[in-house]
């Protein structure tokens, strides 16, 4: 004899809740993805393990404190650089603009580092 199934026996309330949650998560992830700013980011770290990430598309000037004083970082036209630094040699300023993934500027005296990051890094660490 052919078995007959009722819809309510096949799919109960728990299944509906579960499927709704799945759809909810998929929709949420999709909107999150399309809302993400494009391009790459700059990650700034200071000596006290604080980390700041800004989009390279933001045109801003950031003042980050270090043991010697304030380092001023400029983000402009999809690139970033150290504009002023209280360190002695100013090597960090001379490095100029950076804009490619993994490009890094480190100011060891003032313990501040800048690195360009993308959504997928091309390497884990740099040998120098």
């Amino acid at each position: 004899m052919k078995k007959s199934y009722k819809f309510t026996k096949l799919v109960n309330i728990g299944d509906i809740v579960f499927i709704s949650i799945c759809f909810g998560i998929i929709l949420f992830s999709f909107f999150q993805m399309i809302n993400l700013p494009r391009g790459e980011y700059i990650k700034i770290e200071d000596g006290t393990h604080n980390e700041f990430v800004f989009s390279l598309e933001s045109n801003v000037e950031k003042k980050i404190g270090g043991p010697l004083g304030d380092t001023i970082i400029v983000i402009q036209n999809n690139k970033a650089r150290i504009q002023s630094s209280p360190c002695n040699k100013k090597y960090c300023i001379h490095q100029g603009w950076i804009n490619k993934i993994n490009e890094t500027i480190v100011c060891i005296p003032n313990k501040i580092s800048l690195s360009i990051i993308g959504k997928t890094p091309s390497y884990d660490s740099i040998n120098y």
Binding site: Q95, G96, I98, K100, N102, E103, T104, I105, S122, Y123, D124, S125, I126, N127, Y128
Partner: peptide, 10 residues
């Protein structure tokens, strides 16, 4: 691992 360019910041 990346190997640093001796004359460029990357």
């Amino acid at each position: 691992v990346g190997i640093q360019h001796p004359r460029k910041p990357r």
